[in-house]
């Protein structure tokens, strides 16, 4: 077995364990807990319908959990590096396995969500309103099958953006010493608040115009006033560019990882 497939097998097993645990927690919080409260307060009257409603609401929770999980799994860098370098696995292989593993997880999650969305909502009039993508970009192609295909591609690329962001931030933090990391954790929110405050004041006192930012943001999300509906291609292009750039940077930073002294 090649090193990459050995590492990938290890990664996938670990990811599935994490996801299984997260889904159990999610079902506990979204379904089991409200059901217990319902039984205590109202008894078992109409319990079947109540539980069915709770289960249908887990779709949105599942999408959220997928994003959070993929981000977290992407960001776990240093401990993973420690374990792999102890086991004679190069940084290059460890990075490639993580990228492939998370892409596979994103693919499985998106296939599941696509099928689940289509099965549960198909045929209802609420279809376009219930799926955020179709609500925004659902009219672009004019052909239902093309819009649905694009929905899958779009959400897949978006999910990849999420884990690439995790990998990008994780690799930056993995290179910092513990003391520097603590400073950064405190400094980033502070700087963020200061920058937002300054921007707010500059905008309110008309020192800078928001027109340019407004146009840029509209372009980013694919808004076109002449078409009257959103175009998914500009955000798709931006996300693809981020996946390439973010992945390359995270790979470069991963190759710089080293065992830290005293940590």
């Amino acid at each position: 077995m090649s090193k990459l497939s050995s590492v990938l097998k290890y990664d996938l097993k670990r990811y599935l364990r994490f996801i299984g645990m997260a889904y159990l927690w999610m079902i506990g919080i979204v379904v089991v807990l409200p059901t217990i409260v319902q039984i205590i307060s109202n008894g078992t009257n109409n319990l079947g319908g109540f539980i069915q409603n709770l289960f249908s609401s887990t779709l949105v929770s599942a999408i959220f959990v997928n994003f959070v999980l993929l981000f977290c799994l992407g960001s776990l860098t240093y401990e993973r590096f420690e374990f792999f370098i102890q086991n004679g696995i190069s940084r290059r292989t460890a990075w490639a396995s993580k990228w492939i593993g998370l892409t596979l997880m994103a693919l499985v999650a998106n296939i599941y969500n696509q099928v689940f969305s289509m099965v549960t909502i198909w045929g209802t009039t609420k279809f376009d309103d219930s799926v955020p993508y179709l609500e925004t970009y659902g009219k672009f192609f004019g052909e239902r099958w093309m819009d649905l295909t694009m929905m899958f591609v779009f959400t897949m690329i978006f999910t990849m953006c999420v884990f690439v962001m995790g990998m990008f931030l994780g690799s930056i933090f993995a290179l910092l010493a513990r003391s520097t990391r603590r400073i950064v954790y405190v400094a980033i929110p502070l700087i963020g608040v200061i920058v937002i405050t300054i921007f707010g004041k500059l905008i309110s006192s008309h020192v800078i115009s928001t027109e340019g930012i407004d146009i840029f943001l509209k372009w980013c999300v694919g808004y076109n006033s002449s078409l009257g509906y959103f175009n998914p291609l500009p955000p798709l292009g931006i996300m693809l560019a981020w996946i390439i750039i973010g992945s390359l940077i995270s790979r470069y930073l991963n190759l710089k990882l080293k065992i830290k002294r005293g940590e």
């Binding site: 420690e82 102890q86 004679g88 696995i89 190069s90």
Partner: peptide, 20 residues
């Protein structure tokens, strides 16, 4: 450096704990 074949042919047992 960054070579799986070569790194997989050596094992370092050290004072630091790199296992989960």
């Amino acid at each position: 450096q960054d070579n799986d074949q070569q790194l997989g042919n050596m094992y370092l047992m050290s004072e630091v704990d790199l296992y989960p």
